[in-house]
Measured scan of single mutants.
Amino acid sequence: VSVELPAPSSWKKLFYPNKVGSVKKTEVVFVAPTGEEISNRKQLEQYLKSHPGNPAIAEFDWTTSG
C-alpha cells in the first residue's frame, strides 16, 4: 500500500509506510515521467544527469511529510 505525496512537476512521490512488526524501514520512491522508480539520491542524481529538463535535485524532498 502506498500513499502519493506532493512531488515536483510531472513526477510522483510514493510513500510506503512500514507494516507493524516489519524490519523494512519506511520508504519514499519518486516515479519519473518515464515511469522509472527512483529510490535513493544517487539514482536520482544519475537520472537527472541523463535526462535534462527535469526539476533541480533540490526540489526533491525525501521526507514523508510531503
Rank of each mutant, 00 (worst) to 15 (best):
F15I: 12
V23N: 14
S9L: 13
K12P: 03
T63H: 08
E37Q: 13
K24R: 13
Y47M: 00
K12N: 04
V20Y: 11
G21A: 08
L44P: 00
G66Q: 10
S22P: 09
N40H: 06
E37L: 15
K42V: 12
P55L: 05
L14W: 09
P33I: 03
P6C: 09
W11A: 01
A56K: 09
V29F: 07
I57H: 04
Q46T: 10
S39Y: 15
E36H: 07
E37C: 14
E45W: 14
E36S: 03
K42P: 08
E37G: 05
K24W: 14
S22F: 09
S39G: 08
G21V: 06
P33S: 03
L44M: 06
V3L: 10
F15K: 04
E4T: 08
K13P: 02
K49A: 13
K42D: 13
W62A: 01
K42E: 14
V3M: 09
S65M: 11
V31A: 03
K24T: 14
W11M: 01
R41N: 09
W62C: 03
N40Q: 05
K24C: 15
E45A: 13
D61Y: 05
A58R: 10
L48R: 01
A58W: 15
H51K: 03
V23H: 15
G66S: 11
E59D: 09
Q46H: 09
P6V: 07
W62K: 01
E36R: 03
V31W: 06
Y16M: 08
P33L: 02
W11F: 03
L48V: 03
I38E: 00
G66T: 11
S65T: 13
L44A: 00
L14A: 03
E4L: 10
T26W: 15
P6Q: 08
H51T: 03
P33E: 02
T63E: 09
G53I: 04
V28W: 03
S50M: 12
T34W: 02
L14F: 15
S22L: 09
P8H: 05
K24Q: 14
A7E: 02
G21L: 07
V20M: 11
G21R: 04
K25I: 09
L44V: 01
K19E: 10
E4P: 07
A32P: 03
F30K: 00
P6S: 08
V23Q: 14
V28E: 01
K25W: 14
Q46N: 10
V3D: 05
S2M: 12
R41K: 12
Y16A: 06
S9E: 13
V20H: 11
T63P: 03
E37I: 15
L5F: 09
S10Q: 14
Y16G: 04
E59F: 06
E36Q: 06
N40W: 03
E4V: 08
A7T: 04
Y47L: 00
N54G: 12
A7R: 03
P6M: 07
P8M: 06
Y47N: 00
S10R: 15
E45Q: 11
V28K: 01
G35W: 01
K42T: 11
Y47Q: 00
K42R: 12
D61N: 08
V31C: 07
Y47C: 01
E27N: 14
D61E: 07
P55S: 04
A7C: 06
V28Q: 01
G35D: 02
S65A: 12
K13F: 03
S9D: 14
P8D: 04
Q43T: 08
Y47P: 00
W11Q: 01
E45F: 11
Y16H: 06
L14E: 03
E4G: 08
N54D: 03
S10N: 15
R41M: 14
G21W: 03
S10L: 13
T26D: 14
N54F: 03
Y16E: 03
T63S: 14
K12I: 09
K12Q: 09
A7I: 04
A56R: 08
P8F: 05
E36T: 04
K19N: 11
W62S: 01
A7N: 04
G35C: 03
V28D: 00
P52S: 05
K25D: 14
S39L: 12
S2R: 12
V20R: 09
A7M: 05
N54E: 09
T34A: 02
E36D: 07
A32Y: 00
N40S: 13
P17Q: 12
N40T: 12
K19Q: 13
L48I: 06
E4C: 10
G53H: 06
P55G: 05
L44T: 00
K24H: 15
V23P: 13
L48H: 01
A7V: 05
V20L: 12
S10G: 15
W62D: 01
H51C: 03
W11R: 02
S2T: 11
P6T: 08
K49R: 12
